[in-house]
Write a protein that binds this DNA or RNA. Structure first.
Lengths: 129, 129
DNA sequence: CCAACTGTATTATAACAATAATACACTTTC
DNA sequence: GAAAGTGTATTATTGTTATAATACAGTTGG
């Protein structure tokens, strides 16, 4: 049913974009599947402690993206055909890794040091997700 | 003199925060050193194509952070004592890598696949920075 | 000295993000 | 059928981001 369990709001990025990103990542990871129901606007807004309009803005964007479908009166459903998911996965990974590599390089880190850091932090955060 | 050469504006994050982040990373990387002069508010705003007030907001934040000093009439200078730089380096790396690892894990990627991707993209972006 | 440049401050405006309070029509469920 | 829950829409308000146009006092360099 997609309960937004691991959702961690971070400041800097607008909340509605964080909601969009959460669903996109879930679909790419497979934890959110085609046909799954999303929580209603009101339910999720209460759960996250934000305004219903903020959730609506996120769902609106997801619908324009083709990732969810909404019919008035019923809950919104995830629409995730394989080709869309594949394209989304490539897009997200490319974006994130590119930005990350650029930032680490700008911080003066060598590749080997970066890989080692990630290797260690990966284990460290293993349970906290 | 710190010319903001590799500055790449990204949408999502406010510009003034991107300017702050750029200086912070430069100091951590050593490409911006103690005593270096920053471009004036007006010069940098023209160079980046943004409003002088936006640059001022960034410089203000950097000054409150203790990373630059400003005296009215003269150019602002970088103030980067070793202990401040070390603390900043730890803070930035911890923040970025933690967020990155969480996002990749949320996207369903395994550690080995992630490390391999980064290893490959690192070489690929080697010249573009 | 003095012109040019510098930091700083002020006021106004526009766009966006987020909240708040409704209202209406549709679907689900008992 | 009716109540509860749902998507959708509207209007208003607040705060932040960014721009624009100034103004003033201090520093620098010829």
């Amino acid at each position: 049913m997609c309960g937004f369990e691991g959702f961690v709001p971070v400041d800097g990025l607008p909340i509605y974009l964080q909601i969009v990103r959460y669903v996109e990542r879930g679909v790419v990871a497979g934890s959110i599947a085609h046909g799954d129901e999303l929580p209603s606007r009101r339910t999720l807004s209460a759960q996250l402690g934000v305004n219903p309009n903020t959730v609506q803005k996120a769902y609106r964007m997801l619908e324009e993206e083709g990732l969810i479908t909404s019919r008035s009166g019923a809950k919104s459903e995830v629409c995730a055909p394989p080709d869309l998911v594949a394209a989304l996965r490539s897009k997200l990974l490319e974006q994130e890794i590119t930005a990350f590599v650029r930032s680490l390089r700008q911080s003066g880190l060598e590749k080997e040091a970066a890989l080692e850091l990630i290797d260690r932090l990966w284990e460290q955060k293993e349970e906290s997700v």
